[in-house]
Design a protein around this nucleic acid. Structure first.
Lengths: 223, 223
DNA sequence: AGAATCGATTAAGGCAGTATTAAAGGTTAA
DNA sequence: TTAACCTTTAATACTGCCTTAATCGATTCT
């Protein structure tokens, strides 16, 4: 799950980043509205966490413009100011949820999950693909009913592939999915993780498309 | 068991806190209705003890509003005023029980237990999980019929894990469960308690999920 | 076929998260 | 008050994950 975090307070951003990454999200952090807008053009995000008090522009303006452009990604507003009016304004501008600072990290995570579940008709609660199932909430992977233990990176990788069945994801895209846009890694780490995934789930789960990338495959039947 | 105590008399609050914590509950204390409401938003509680005479708002109003919002956590009203009318009003506002000041601490504890038992379909009287049983009322733990002596913190830890079978609880969540929201500890105390739990109950009772936290496991069979 | 490119495989090192142990401070009961 | 026990702190040991990097194998292009 790829989240765009737009927040100018670096301390809060830092906390959110580490906290939510532990919960299985991948965050990209932008401190300015302009940078956020650019990021939205460049990459794909599943949701956005938007602070209203930005240095270069009010968050609500950014949100309004996004909606006018037809972008429909779920937006959760973070705000220190609370009043019914504020809340209404935020929701009218096209926000999907509104959370007050200070907030509880778990609540934010829970709301994000529910938001993502709502938005992508498909439940966030269980992604299933030919006997291979991944539950983002409990972070458990099962293959034909058997529980398989995956590391954090392996889970992220599998999640990214499962969310785009049939689509080919380039190594670069997968990298973005694991580390966030740009903050890549300078080796064949993705490769190694793919290898380990195949070791645990069978070589057919991940198909290689030479020159292009990888896509999810149909795992072998149980023995 | 996590209780939200809403009481403006600090002396009473203090007494309840120490008394109920000795009985295995974890309390968070708020002296104002507003603070209580905020706490309810931020964290999870298993029940609420509500004093009616609050400085900023009548407790009944708070309760009524909570119920309108669909919050269904068990509420036990504490009141100095007694009359049939009062009692009826309280219950009509959505209270689950009504206790008069001055009260006996043991009675309060007993009522809390019965309240919790009623509310969580699952009996509060005995949480059982693969031969491992914990009775919150007597605070006794047995493993395959054998009585095991656990310290207060160990009991709280085991209780929290047993109440969420299958779920992963982060060190932070467990900390909240032991000390109340925010009032944390600045060391690896949780870690040490987990270690001691494993020493007493076997290493399999608590499973470590690297990077995320802990969850209850299946204890070893008796010898 | 030979060269070049891309992906697979393997092993090693560093790092972060946990486990373990010991010790000090506090509380409770005799 | 002493003694036993519980809790927290802190230091150290350990484990597994992630990345790196080197090598091997396969495919494509010339």
């Amino acid at each position: 799950m790829h989240i765009l975090l737009v927040e100018d307070d670096l301390l809060i951003a830092q906390g959110l980043q580490t906290g939510l990454e532990l919960q299985g999200f991948t965050l990209n952090h932008m401190a300015h509205a302009a940078a956020a807008e650019q990021a939205l053009e460049l990459g794909h995000f599943d949701a956005m966490i938007l602070d209203l008090g930005l240095p270069d522009e009010d968050g609500l303006q950014l949100l309004t413009r996004m909606r006018q452009q037809g972008k429909d990604l779920p937006v959760l507003i973070l705000s220190a100011r609370d009043s019914v009016l504020q809340r209404v304004e935020g929701l009218q501008a096209g926000a999907d949820d509104y959370l007050l600072k200070p907030f509880d990290l778990r609540e934010l995570a829970a709301r994000l999950h529910s938001l993502l579940r709502r938005s992508s008709g498909r439940s966030t609660h269980l992604i299933e693909h030919h006997g291979l199932a991944f539950d983002p909430a409990t972070r458990e992977t099962t293959l034909h009913g058997e529980l398989v233990t995956l590391s954090r990176r392996e889970q992220a990788l599998l999640g990214a592939l499962l969310q785009n069945p049939g689509h080919i994801l380039s190594a670069e895209q997968l990298q973005d999915s694991l580390y966030g846009l740009g903050d890549g890694v300078e080796s064949n780490a993705i490769n190694v993780h793919i290898y380990n995934l195949r070791r645990k789930l069978g070589s057919e789960v991940v198909k290689t498309v030479r020159g292009l990338g990888y896509r999810i495959g149909v795992p072998r039947e149980p023995a």
